[in-house]
Design a protein around this nucleic acid. Structure first.
Lengths: 345, 345
DNA sequence: CTGTTAGCGCATTCAC
DNA sequence: GTGAATGCGCTAACAG
């Protein structure tokens, strides 16, 4: 249409240079006249280039948060089956800072076109990011943003709003004057779990802004020594009988749910986060009243999809990407689950 | 790999016959050994066949429910840009049964490969379905199922569960002994609005099952003569001062929200359905407390996607497809909206 | 700086 | 019944 050959058009489309201004102009005019949009799938078919993408996140265990993120990544890979991308997955133990350091060190020894990071330990992640910057390897975060680094993009829900929401939900369902217990386990030697901190801030700010009367109690809890929790929780609930509801700011809500059910406590409402297998069970059985979801599948899917399209077409990327927060109840969880399973396989 | 030519393989893949049993066997063996999966996009590229799909729904107005369904349909079409499908869209006035009859009659005069139906009037839809059956044109419903017909599939949320959910939500946020107003406008001469009826049933069943104490009032409302509503609502709320919350079972929740705000009534909670532009505004301003969403975009997308894949590969379809019910609040609606817009364009 | 050509996975056409 | 040839939109390698 512009009177030039396919080769020239291709050079223009991919900014490969060696094109005369006149040819370029003619082609570009036609291009936007016909609103040309390249077809990723067919383009991928004839693409010789291979991409190598590093993925590093906490270890995935069955039915848990990180597994779901990886499922989303796989779905995107599946959708772009024509593009030749090699994925190197290296996970670390999110409760062991040494494991994280080792994994990140190894990551840095590999040549790659891009990296998807699921952050946990803040300092380690910043260091990883800086080294990747030096090597000119772009990176994308899933689950949370790490301040002080410059990712291509991040995909997460908004933890501050999440905290506000959880406060709103618990305050809706408990008596006006009862106390609220909040559980926010922090890892040892872990400056991060940043999301949890921001959720707590959102929670407290909402509580203040709305002038709620509920007294707030911090629930003692140990991630490192789970066998102590039964004891800790018993003491806590015995001591504070005015507690009407509990908000769990990390994904371990089912631990509290199980404690309540084991001890036949049924006058305490529960608002939790993350659609893990165990939380879903507790929700279905009525021990959890509201479960907030962060769409981890979607996060993983979008991260990989965005990355692939960026690598191929170098199109600009929006840096901040907040996925919606889902509010789930006993009634709606069934369709939510079924749906994700059907669609995402 | 099976020692035959591409032509033969193609005949086997598409069941075109003219294949010797020996060749078929050899090929099929290889096929499942390598787990062969056809690539829809590339297949579409070389496909000469054109598909014609009829779409008939209530008229779409800006920011409303049906527009969103159509957006989802467009997104699927967009994703399958390689497949040559011609869409004929014929909408009808959902408040005018004659308009519906005319449109359906016209639909039946067209030859097509399939039809997507957004039902409103029950008898008319049943008649349409029967005629399509005679012509061997498969059809899919979006928004709701029409009993007594045999669609290829339907995509909707579960209206009964939706009603239960709305009852749960309103009862959470109002005082235990206050009354609940429910609004369920029924069209004149309209046996359907089936979803609304089922929602009401869900609502009442939940109310009974949970032994809730709130007295239930039916709010008078007219779809046909909206100018009367101001008056009707005034009388209603003056007469029934114990009302603590209102549930709107159709998408017109913003009408009540506007009434409450205009009349400076701020002690009545509101639970509504459908993420329309006006409902979103009312939610953001705090007049609506919970908004339930039916993922209409997703319904439309899945309907078209499923249909395309079925037409091309004749793969079996699941008939019942319930999309999740979304619970939205002032806090979460922002990301929900933004997200849908970003992703679906 | 430019045009030609082969080939990606697939469906179709036609001659054997 | 079968295989060879052509073309879909696109990229890459190469010859000018």
């Amino acid at each position: 249409m512009a009177g030039v050959s396919t080769g020239t058009v291709d050079r223009i489309l991919h900014n490969r240079g060696n094109v005369s201004p006149s040819a370029r102009e003619a082609v570009e005019k036609v291009l936007d006249r016909v609103k040309y949009r390249p077809n990723v799938h067919i383009s991928g078919m004839s693409l010789k280039r291979k991409y190598r993408i590093l993925i590093t996140t906490p270890q995935q265990s069955h039915g848990e948060y990180w597994e779901t993120i990886h499922n989303g990544i796989k779905r995107a890979l599946n959708e772009y089956e024509n593009i030749d991308v090699e994925c190197l997955i290296h996970t670390y133990n999110q409760y062991d800072i040494y494991s994280c350091r080792d994994t990140f060190k190894y990551i840095l020894s590999i040549e790659a076109d891009a990296c998807i990071i699921g952050p946990t330990f803040k300092e380690e992640t910043i260091h990883l990011a800086q080294e990747l910057d030096k090597k000119n390897i772009p990176y994308i975060y899933v689950d949370s943003m790490v301040e002080g680094t410059s990712p291509l993009a991040f995909f997460s829900s908004d933890p501050y709003i999440c905290g506000q929401l959880m406060c709103k939900l618990i305050s809706y369902i408990i008596p006006e004057n009862s106390g609220i217990g909040i559980l926010q386990a922090v890892r040892i030697g872990d400056e991060s779990a940043n999301n949890t901190i921001l959720r707590k801030k959102g929670f407290l700010d909402y509580h203040k802004k709305e002038k709620l009367h509920n007294k707030i109690y911090r629930i003692p809890f140990s991630v490192m020594e789970p066998q102590k929790n039964e004891q800790l929780l018993s003491e806590f609930f015995n001591l504070n009988s005015s507690i009407g509801g509990v908000v769990v700011l990390n994904s371990r809500g089912s631990v509290i749910a199980n404690f309540l059910s084991d001890n036949k406590i049924d006058n305490i409402k529960l608002v939790c986060i993350d659609v893990t297998k165990q939380n879903v069970e507790a929700l279905e059985l009525g021990y959890i009243d509201f479960l907030v979801g962060q769409e981890p599948e979607h996060q993983g899917y979008l991260a990989m999809k965005t990355l692939i399209e960026h690598l191929i077409y170098r199109n600009p990327i929006k840096v901040e990407n907040y996925v919606p927060l889902d509010i789930l109840t006993k009634e709606t969880i069934g369709y939510y689950k079924e749906f994700k399973e059907v669609e995402y396989i």
